[in-house]
Write a protein that binds this DNA or RNA. Structure first.
Lengths: 194, 194
DNA sequence: TCAGATCGATAACATATGTTATCAAGTTTA
DNA sequence: TAAACTTGATAACATATGTTATCGATCTGA
């Protein structure tokens, strides 16, 4: 959320910068856990370098739900705001450099921001956009085949396909690793005709 | 959103009531369109009696994404807030009585509400909960089979199964009508063992 | 640098799901 | 009230997808 504020409303950057000093820098290897499923979210996470995923455990199996990359920020929003346990684990995919801003300062920063004129409008705008994002993820399952979802991913967010191991992507698309492999080889054959 | 405010924060009811007079009451038959895909959302809709669905058109086929019932309010949130065309059509399933509150008054009401202490917290709470709802819809496709999704629907929101025609539910679950019929008959057989 | 993990492709088979067609029982409407 | 539409079940067949197993290519840590 903070990430979206800063990128969409640059006039808020001054607020943000006053909190830089409270951030803790972490230089961590791949597969490092930043937040564990079932625990409360205590930090806003900003990614300077690397990438992370959020996933949950389903009968012993990882099910990846989302990917984040450089210059993106995240928190388990519901856990953070409503103080409930996180549904998801957050862990690095690549060796990464991340910054953590403790919840206490985020709350304080939000209070400050609320003094800004039109802050309500900005909140609503961003909340609506985030909501639309998740609705679209969900609609995509109703509307598209796994193959179409993969093609859209390739087109709209190619960096995911390039940097994320395939079995994470398979779970995110809702198919088995074997089937994602089949989809790829089918699409590759299609292109051979040229 | 307004609906959630009122039910979760009853101290805001007084604000709401001042706007009752601006609502237009509609007594309409089934299959009446309240908002058309591609047009901008102009009203907040409150359902007194009946039920409605939101859906989109995909190559000539209806794809239902959500259902709403008595005492629920809705608007195409993104369309409403960000003033973009709605992705979805909203139409009645049963003969219904609904109230429409024009956007102008909603905006005004939100402005008023923002004077209320802790309004920011309320907004964030509700936005987080709505977001969680849609994330869960999406996660359900990653985690569950269509059969499991149907069973959860039956358990968590049985009124949907009771009142909504099956082909709308099939689309919502992401399966063909034929397959939903198979799922139902399979589950019925399972229960015969008692 | 080597042994074990990770990652991805593929085959063979089983199961799940879609498509099309048909039938029957309501509902709605002219 | 008859005709047209809506709703839902089912069969037969085609296709999509999951599961398990195997192989090879990297990658990674002691």
């Amino acid at each position: 959320m903070l990430f979206h504020f800063r990128t969409k409303f640059p006039q808020l950057n001054a607020y943000w910068e006053r909190y830089l000093e409270f951030q803790k820098r972490l230089d961590i290897p791949a597969k490092t856990t930043l937040l564990e499923e079932g625990k409360k979210s205590l930090n806003y996470i900003f990614i300077e370098r690397g990438c992370v995923r959020s996933f949950f455990n389903n009968n012993g199996e990882d099910k990846t739900v989302q990917f984040f990359f450089e210059n993106e920020g995240l928190a388990s929003f519901d856990s953070f705001v409503n103080d409930v346990p996180s549904q998801f684990t957050i862990e690095t995919i690549e060796p990464s450099i991340v910054y953590l801003l403790p919840k206490k300062y985020v709350t304080q920063l939000m209070e400050e921001l609320s003094a800004e004129p039109d802050f309500l409008k900005m909140i609503l705008q961003i909340a609506a956009q985030r909501q639309t994002h998740y609705i679209n993820e969900f609609v995509s399952f109703i509307r598209d085949t796994p193959e179409q979802r993969y093609e859209k991913l390739l087109k709209d967010r190619p960096h995911i396909v390039q940097r994320v191991p395939q079995h994470y992507i398979a779970a995110y698309l809702g198919v088995s690793t074997v089937h994602l492999s089949r989809i790829k080889s089918k699409l590759a054959k299609g292109k051979d005709h040229f």
